[in-house]
């Protein structure tokens, strides 16, 4: 099979399209690159969906943790502590166990034991907790003057939150949030590795990398290829978040604009 044919056959293998059987016999570099790359579809799916959904929930949690009322504050604090204080590995285990139980209660929960939904929920809750802590930290360091100025202009209530507090919080939190996005992306490799079963050999990039490592008994080819893909996608994340950062800080004079530095303030 030429490389083009290999790509046609396996580029979408991880979502079940193309050749049904995985390559056998001599495993070419082209097959390595194509299949591991195909697996990246799952990693990207998990990362994008969990981040998008987690972002909104994180805002709610951060406000909850900053709230005066203990009824709002305590649950948020505990949720954040629970998810930040335990390894993702163990969270996946408990979640899978719980989903199996739910499934036996009602067929409504059938989809949960599949990685596409179940693992996504865990990653979503996990990233929400981490991001909430970042946002909470930012919320506490909003310059007093900003809020006072808003009051002086008669901007109050929800309008003050939406126009003044929230944008400032986001701007302050963005560099750390970029790191969280990168770590969440890396954490997606744990999904099939430790917790959720792989259906019809439709796995993520790590699944295919270990497939090759298992067949060729040579870990020095597939894992570095996997690493290369991740470095590439990490650069994409840094670039994308950098664009958003630019927009968040567009009102500031050129020299004062904080550049997003890939600095791990809050991580997994």
């Amino acid at each position: 099979m030429s490389c083009i044919e290999t790509i046609q056959a396996y580029a979408l293998r991880s979502i079940g399209l193309g050749e049904r059987l995985l390559p056998r016999g001599d495993y070419t570099l082209c097959e390595h690159f194509t299949l591991i790359g195909s697996g990246m579809i799952w990693n990207v799916y998990f990362a994008v969906m969990a981040l998008l959904l987690g972002f909104f929930f994180a805002n709610v949690l951060a406000l909850g943790k900053a709230a005066q009322s203990a009824w709002l504050r305590k649950p948020s604090e505990w949720f954040i502590f629970l998810f930040r204080g335990s390894p993702l590995f163990i969270q996946f285990f408990f979640a899978y166990f719980l989903f199996l139980r739910l499934k036996s209660v009602s067929p409504m929960f059938d989809g949960l034991t599949a990685a596409g939904l179940g693992a996504l929920i865990v990653l979503f809750l996990n990233t929400a907790a981490y991001s909430a802590e970042i946002f909470y930290g930012a919320l506490r360091s909003i310059p007093k003057g900003d809020v006072e100025a808003a009051d002086a202009y008669g901007i109050t209530g929800f309008r003050r939150f939406r126009r003044i507090i929230w944008p400032t919080m986001l701007r302050l939190a963005w560099p750390a949030y970029t790191n969280e996005a990168i770590f969440l992306f890396h954490a997606t490799t744990l999904v099939f590795f430790s917790a959720f079963p792989v259906h019809q050999q439709k796995g993520d990039s790590l699944y295919y990398a270990s497939y090759f490592a298992d067949k060729t008994f040579n870990p020095f080819v597939p894992y570095p290829i996997l690493a290369m893909y991740f470095i590439l996608f990490t650069l994409v994340i840094v670039w994308l978040f950098g664009m958003v950062n630019k927009r968040l800080n567009r009102h500031l004079p050129q020299a004062q604009r904080p550049r997003v530095r890939y600095r791990p303030n809050l991580l997994r």
């Binding site: 049904r20 059987l21 079963p197 019809q200 050999q201």
Partner: peptide
């Protein structure tokens, strides 16, 4: 996988 049955690993 070769038989084409539904496999879960």
């Amino acid at each position: 996988a070769e038989q084409g049955w539904t496999l879960v690993e």
